[in-house]
Amino acid sequence: MSPWLEYKTYAAGHRFTRSVKEQSKCYIVRTGAVSIHRQPDDILIDYIPAPTIRGIIPIPDDFESLYVIKIFEEAEIAIIDIDVFDILLSELNLWEPFARHMQLLASLAPEVIFRLNSRRIYEAVRMQLYELMAKPESIREQIIVENFIRAKVQASRSAVMHILSELRKGEYVVIENGVLKSVNSIPERF
């Protein structure tokens, strides 16, 4: 699609908002990384490195949440109307690759929901440590592990810090200056 798209560079911190009333655009991220946050509860959905497409899944009419796409690392992004995106998919015969992409997203959704809704704080922290470790190093090096976990699981700072401290003592994780450096096999129960 690149020849039909106009990319612009956006600095880290720039934000785009999606809501029921504002969802006619999609964002094709060619370089950099973005994060997605749900408002008003400020839940971090994820950090996503390029290449990625955001804004392609419609928000149901009865949703009151607002979603913020925040530029995490300077990014090249093309913003196009979702109807134009659909036309390009048809004209360029890209519906099958797009459907496979959506199939992959749908298969990941239950896992993301499980991670965000863990019943025990320890389980949620454990899952988020593995998730953060799977991020590219360029993103992970910019993230304070405690902030990342609290933004994802909405737990108290003291609870998260206690668990991280115990995991560091047991040498299950290596954290330097607040940044997650490595994860060893973290026990399922603590």
Rank of each mutant, 00 (worst) to 15 (best):
Y47P: 04
P51K: 09
L89E: 08
M127W: 07
W95G: 02
V84G: 01
F16N: 02
A159K: 10
H162L: 12
K135V: 03
A106P: 00
K25F: 09
N117G: 11
F190Y: 09
S24E: 13
A50S: 15
R18N: 06
S24F: 03
V179K: 15
P40N: 07
Y10L: 05
E111W: 05
N93A: 11
E146F: 00
Q128H: 11
M161T: 12
D83N: 13
V29Q: 03
L167E: 07
R15L: 07
F114I: 13
E64H: 14
T9Q: 12
E131V: 02
H101Y: 15
D46L: 02
E73C: 12
V145L: 01
P97L: 03
F114A: 15
V112M: 13
R189M: 04
V174C: 03
P49F: 01
N184K: 14
A134I: 00
K21G: 11
K135A: 12
A106I: 07
E96A: 05
I48V: 14
E73D: 15
K8N: 12
V179T: 14
A159R: 10
L89F: 08
L167W: 06
L94N: 05
S158E: 13
A50W: 08
E6F: 09
I82W: 02
L129F: 06
V68A: 02
E141C: 01
I77N: 01
P49D: 08
Q142C: 04
L108M: 12
L116V: 04
F63P: 00
A134M: 07
S165P: 02
E176K: 14
